[in-house]
Amino acid sequence: MDGFGSDFSAGGSGGKMDTGTIMEQVKVQIAVANAQELLQRMTDKCFRKCISKPGSSLDNSEQKCIAMCMDRYMDSWNIVSRTYNSRLQRERARM
């Protein structure tokens, strides 16, 4: 916990940050990390699905495939999220 506190105070002007400001930063950092994770995994999956033989440029059908793949990946993410969430709730109710 030592480095944690000093990281935040180093960012301010020497003064203390209020709880709201710190939480705002924490939430933004988590959201950015989440978006990066999604982007990285989605790129990996859609590259595999859509570009079988990399040519001199992304052709029209590849671009269409990428767009479709992105949308379906995000749909899948949401389905998985809902399923996992309801499973967690069921498990908690069982305890």
């Binding site: 994770e37 993410w77 998985v80 996992y84």
Partner: peptide
């Protein structure tokens, strides 16, 4: 917030496998 982040990380992993 940590719990929420952990949940999201787990969803990324499941989505990867199940995709």
């Amino acid at each position: 917030e940590q719990q929420k982040a952990q949940f999201q990380a787990q969803v990324h992993s499941f989505t990867d496998i199940c995709w």
